[in-house]
Simulated assay, not measured.
Amino acid sequence: MSRDHQASSQHDGTAGDVVVLSQGDHTLVILYGDVDVRVSEELEHAGRFSIDAARRTVMDVRHVTMMDSVGVSFVVRLAAGLRSAGTELELQGPSRRVAELITLVGAGELARWLPELPLEADVSAEQA
């Protein structure tokens, strides 16, 4: 796994953060914490990077604690941009509240939902 672009500094719990990685045949966008107006610039960079790569993009939202209209708009715009580029957006494991929000605004139809995977911390705990 190579890190192609990290959109903002560090993840500190609830403050939002966006990380973009290039992995084999797809782009991985990982969202952390509160996805709101404070990370809008980082979301914009992540979206451009993903669409320019013109590959399947997986958005991991398992670490999102809150998402407002800025985050939902990002999901919609990224999914539409990827469709225009001939590929798709896949969503990985959102919390129930985030999934309801994305579905409520109709964005759930724009992306494919992936089966739930355990968080890395869960895997480490199981191996101990």
Rank of each mutant, 00 (worst) to 15 (best):
F49I: 01
V20Y: 08
R55P: 02
I102G: 01
H63R: 14
I51H: 07
A85F: 09
H11D: 12
V105N: 05
H45V: 06
A107E: 00
Q23N: 12
Q10K: 10
P94H: 03
L114V: 04
S2W: 01
V70E: 05
E42Q: 15
D68G: 09
M66I: 13
F49P: 02
V105E: 06
T103D: 10
L119A: 12
H63E: 15
V64F: 09
V37I: 15
L91Q: 04
E116V: 10
G33M: 03
E120W: 03
G71K: 07
T87I: 10
R77T: 13
A99Y: 05
S40P: 02
A15L: 06
D34F: 09
R97N: 11
G71E: 10
D68N: 14
G81I: 11
V72K: 02
D25I: 09
D25P: 03
H26A: 07
M1R: 05
L21I: 10
G16H: 05
F49S: 02
V105C: 10
H63M: 15
L31H: 03
V64D: 08
H45K: 14
L31W: 02
S73M: 13
Y32T: 00
F74P: 05
S95D: 12
E42M: 04
T57N: 01
H11L: 03
T65Q: 11
